[in-house]
Every structure is written in C-alpha cells, then in structure tokens.
Design a protein around this nucleic acid. Structure first.
Lengths: 106, 106
DNA sequence: AAATATACATTGACAGGCGATGTATATTAG
DNA sequence: CTAATATACATCGCCTGTCAATGTATATTT
C-alpha cells in the first residue's frame, strides 16, 4: 500500500475535475501540471488518467473535442460540464468530511 | 463513489491498527467503537474487517488469540505486534502527507 | 540516425471492498 | 415460551479503480 495508490484512490476524478474547473485541458498537460504542483511527488499513471476520462465523459461530467494543432501530436481537450462542476463541489465537501473522519479514527 | 468506499479505502488497516494500539480487541468491538467515534457515520463492513484481519495477521502486524468467555459468543482477540506498531506510525505519516498532497490538488 | 519528448489509447491482471450467506450463542420483547 | 434481536466470527464471489505493458504517431534534440 504505497502513498501513491490506495490513499489517493478515489481522488483521481476530483483532481482531474479541479484542473478542468480552471480551464479546458488535455491529458498530458493535466498530468504535467499535477507533477509540477506536487514537486514531482505525484503523477497519474496514463492508464489511470485515460480511464478516468472515459468514466467522466460517459457520466456526462466532462466533454471532449479535438484541438486544432497544425503541428505536433493531436490533443483531445476536455471541458467540465455543469454536472461535472456540481460533482466537483460535492467531492470537495466529501474530502473535508473524510479528513475529519479519518483524523478521528487513526 | 461513496464517501464510505474509495475515500476510506487504504485506511481500513490503519483504523484497525489504531484501535489495537490502544488495547487488544476483537472484531465486533472494534467496529462498534468506530461507529461510536464517528456518531454512526462510518462502520467497517464485516467482510472488509475480517479480510483485513487476515491480511494483517499474515503480514505479522497483529496476532490473535481466543478469549476465555464462559458465556456468549466466542471472541477472537487481536494484539498489535511491534511490526504493526511501526506500520501504524508509518501510515499516520503517510496520511499527513496525503492530506497536504490532495489539498494542493483539489 | 538515434534518442527523447509530446500525446493518446487499450488490454489484462491485481487487490481491496462488500453484498450475500452461513454458523452459533445469549438476551429481550411480546 | 417463543420469536426477534444482539453478539460474534467467517467465507465466497463479484465489482471497480489502478497500473504495467504495449502500441501508434509526430516533432525536436543530440
């Protein structure tokens, strides 16, 4: 059980939504941003990241569109929906509750 | 993704170790204590609790012995080992790190 | 010309959580 | 006195999120 697995599990979607709440973005950029923010202490594995995108899009929390890059690899951009925004707020509240709950138990 | 699943996932063992760090105890009592501490907001599912006991005992983090009740259902008591104590301290540190990490990302 | 960075994507395995189910004893309510 | 509830432990099999491995394609750097 490493810090970067079970303890973060359940936050993947919220972390992604948090980035998209700031601005539309794409997988690679989101992951780089996470690495920078955490000084390299954390990163999403690609498989984890892209499967989270699938889940969130299927659930209507985000929408995607292809970027119009004329050079470099193509990018699939994601945009948060109003449903996604609501989920994000809910998840942040749940995180606050979780912190108190776990703090009281460990 | 409910508050009582993925967000707590990864804390099950630490929660159990926390109780055993106070005193030897058994499954049912540990779970009741958790419910009381959290005012009924959280409880371990039995399957989760007992499979965690198995894991922890296999890993040498806890040891078990049968209680000597002369009445009522039999109880299997658990005792934390020094290895388990060390893991508990480690997990608490990881939790502090996790809080900061997640707080910076969501 | 080779290595590295950017960028997306799928497959299959693994592990923890948990619903369902089963066993057994003791106490409480009607 | 008997049915319901509480105490107490245990296992099976499914579900879901994570992730290693692998693959595709383009651009830049060495």
């Amino acid at each position: 059980m490493s810090l970067t697995s079970d303890l973060i599990r359940g936050h993947t979607e919220t972390i992604i939504l948090a980035r998209l709440a700031i601005a539309d973005s794409y997988g690679y950029e989101i992951n780089k941003a996470i690495q920078q923010t955490t000084n390299g202490e954390y990163e999403l594995k690609e498989a984890t990241l892209y499967s989270a995108f699938r889940r969130l899009e299927s659930a209507g929390m985000i929408e995607s569109y292809w970027g119009d890059e004329t050079t470099g690899a193509r990018r699939r951009y994601y945009r948060i929906t109003s449903l996604g925004q609501a989920l994000y707020e809910k998840n942040k509240q749940d995180w606050e509750k979780t912190k108190k709950l776990v703090d009281s138990l460990v």
